[in-house]
Structures are given as C-alpha cells and as structure tokens.
Amino acid sequence: MRASVELQPLAKIRGMGMRIARHRLHPARLGSLAWATFRAVLVIGISFVIVFPLLVRSSLAFRAVEDMMDMTVNWVPRNLTLVNFQIAMKHMDYLKSVAITTLICLLLAAIEVAMCMVIGYGFGRFSYPGSQLLFGLVILSLMIPPSVVMVPLFLNFRYFTIFGLLKEPGLNLIGTSWPLILMSLTGTAKKNGLFIYIVRQYFKGVANELEEAAYVDGASPLRAFVSVMVPNAGPILMVVFLFSFVWHWNDLFYSDLFLKGMKVLPLALQSLTERFAYSWADPNIDGSHITLVSSAAMLLYIVPLLILYAVLQRHFVESIEKTGIVG
C-alpha cells in the first residue's frame, strides 16, 4: 500500500490537494465560484431576452385558430398545424420572393465588396491633396439620415435624366433594382461608408513590404492591388460581403422607396400583414389569423438568414477580430 502511494504521479497528488481545498472553500475560490454563477445567470438571461421574440413567434406560428381562444394554451399549441405557413407562403409567393431577394442581395453585396475594396484601398494606401477631406465626406455620408435625401433621391430616380444628360421626362427607374445598383457602384448605398472605413483601416495596417515587393517585381499599383493586396484580404472581404448581404436582406427603407412593385421579401411581408390587417370584410380570413399568419411569415423571412448564420457563424464572430478594425 505504501509503495503505491509513493508511486502516484505528482499531478494526481496536486489534484487531491485541490479537492481538499475545494472542500474547505477558500474565500478566493468562493468568490470565483460566485462570479461564475452570476455570469452564468446573466448570460442565460440575456440570451433569453434575445431569443424570446423568436420563441413567441414560433409558438404562435404553429397554432390553429382554436388555440388562440383556449386559455390553457400558453406556449405549446394544442393543435399543431402548418396551415399558417401554407397561407403565408401562398400570399408572399414565398419561393419566388426568396429567389429574387437572394439574387438582388448577392448582386448588391458583390458590387459593394468590389467597390468598397477599391475605394477603401485608395484611402488606406494613398494620400493626395484633398484625400482627408474626401474621407471626411465618407463619414458624413454615414451621418446624413436617409430621410433628408429620401424625397429628392426618389424624384431623381423617378425622372432619371442622368442629371440633365437625357431629355425630360427621362427614365423611370423606380420599380427596378437600378437605383440600388447605381448607389452600390459608387459606394453610397446603405452603410457603405462603414465598409469603406473598415477596409481603409485594414489596408492602413498592412505592412509596406508586401506592396513594395510587388513594385520591385515590376507590378503597377493596380496590379499590386489585384494580385497581392486583395488575395490577402480574405477576412475583410468576408465581413463586408456578409454584412452587406444581411443588411440588404433586412432593409425595408430603400426597398420600399425604390423597389415598389417588385417581388422582394420585405415588401411581400409588408403587404401580407396589411392585407390581413384590413380584411375584416373578407369572410375567408378569420380575425385571429393575422397574428398567426404573420408570425409564420416572419419565421419564413428569417429562415434563409438563420441558415446562412448557422453555416458561417464562425466567420461572423471571428472575422471582425481579424480585420484589424481596432488598431
């Protein structure tokens, strides 16, 4: 017996010591235990607050109408049904809307990645008289509330004359995705100033040697950008692409302004709820349907994003840390 005790590895003996110490509950240990408990409660509580609307909507979306009148139904529906989803999909023309929205968002995100990389690179690596001023305007472009320029923008795109080049009354670009494409091409679409800022910060932090090596090998600045700088900027490309895609997907302001009449998800969801809210004259739609159907519709709206997030969540969370936005 004695021999076996002596042969015990050091780590195990240390472990025994720890166990004894835990029994005694040192004040320091008690403190960290209390903090861990407090932290766990907080994290779970905050997570609950974030997930709560999703839970409410999921609970509602699977209910039959009778459950709304049933006082015993609080969270779990008594009559599970997919009827709400069917109605919502039919009224939103779901598959078609998802396809169109995905296409538009992919196109805009691709354009914005390309343009914000170019513009941000220009601000990050070069300086010329007035470049500081122009960058100040990038920040200003973030600050102007969209409602200030909303009406003039609408009018300019409604009677689009390329600012005087075409004859009056010009083209009507409302109801097409051209206004958004034009704004993306010039880095002035939704929150593009932020992307330009992030890209600029990133390129500012890249070592000079990388670029100089390209020049020594005889590359032009454009060539250095395309073949050396961009391939090394993977994480930042990812950040801009993901945020651009998600923000366009969730956008209502510009979609409502420019895409009127197009089958895109935000407008489809908006018209669905309006249709059900003012349909008391329609005997086919029961009054309590609206909450259930719109809950189902909201879930359908976010499902594609949830899938995207599930697949790419590591990039969402970790890429910002890699971008060097901080220093």
Partner: peptide, 22 residues
Amino acid sequence: ALMGFAFTIPFAVGFALFLLYP
C-alpha cells in the same frame, strides 16, 4: 497621388450625385 485619386473617384462621383445633389 494620381493613383489614389483614381481609386477613390467612384465615391467622389457617388457622393456628388447621390448625396450632395439630393
């Protein structure tokens, strides 16, 4: 300097047309 200007010119154009003008 010219190169930097060329890289940032799209924003200058966009700012003038879609923000300053409106």
